[in-house]
Design a binder for these strands. Structure first.
Lengths: 157, 157
DNA sequence: CGCAATTCCGTGTGATACACTAGGAATTGT
DNA sequence: ACAATTCCTAGTGTATCACACGGAATTGCG
């Protein structure tokens, strides 16, 4: 249940792209240095992001990467789903919406399955509610770190 | 971000203990067979659960395991925390409640840290809200599997 | 008492994933 | 032409998973 560095690096890279690159392509090396990530490694993370259309690439000199969609249309969940298979725990769940009496292998203990299902939903809800635009906003006027205020009800929606 | 079988097996074993064992110790082999888990493996999972006090053991013939606390006092989160280190993603977060200007190593990007923090809280909220007693109740009159009804607001609390 | 059923404990193992490093080909602005 | 890039593929050490195994130590029961 630990989240890989793939995920963290990926999100940071995407944030970097949203925050610093305004339409202009940014070289991978720049991102890697700014975010303190191995550029060799980041290169491998950005490949699937490109294939998923989350970033566009410009080859050649002065090339680099740009966001594939506007920042408000890219959620953290989108990034995570690309970088680590299905976002959720446990893989046996039949695809959502298909609750037509379908059984997966261990449907016998659907009691515990409901736990993972609820967990998955909760995780997705959180991750999908945060977009790159939100992160940029947050970066500009941070509500953390400077006196936490322990604002417990902030993103209540 | 995938959840190990340790977690799933562990929860199922604990549920088995809560559901079938009424004070009487149940042998590990019985649990393993009933839940379709390798008993060799389950043995290794139950060791930390015992050390954490979630189960008690009775050695010798006719021995076995019992719950360490009443079922309504054991949450899924309790089990998961024992079986896979800290429940949450990312380890850099300073211990909860200590938001007094403390920095962890990569506090520089506290923007993304907030994501993981929110995620962690959400996960814990879900997992801590489900107890073994809830699972037993659910097992007796299931609201799933038999016509899902998509009851989206059930455990609203 | 003796035996069988158990829990306890450590060790080994094959497979897989993680987090990288490295090298080189292809592309493109200057 | 050249340098800066992206792109692709392969290798590598470490760790973790999901087990199997063998043998102690404990204890109820006949």
């Amino acid at each position: 249940m630990r989240l890989s560095t793939r995920a963290r690096y990926g999100v940071r890279a995407m944030f970097d792209l949203a925050y610093f690159g305004q339409g202009e392509p940014i070289a991978l090396k720049t991102i890697a240095e700014r975010q303190g990530i191995s550029d060799n490694y980041l290169e491998q993370l950005i490949a699937p992001l490109r294939k998923a259309g989350l970033v566009n690439s410009v080859r050649g000199a002065q090339g680099g990467y740009t966001l594939g969609h506007p920042p408000e249309d890219i959620s953290v969940g989108d990034i995570l789903r690309v970088l680590e298979g299905p976002t959720l725990p446990v893989e046996c769940l039949i695809e959502e919406g298909e609750e037509q009496g379908e059984h997966c292998a261990n449907a016998d203990n659907c009691i515990t399955r409901r736990i993972w299902s609820a967990l998955r939903d909760s995780i997705d809800r959180v991750l999908d509610s945060m977009t790159l635009a939100d992160l940029c906003e947050e970066a500009d006027n941070p509500t953390c770190c400077r006196l936490a205020g322990s604002g417990k009800g902030e993103n209540e929606r």
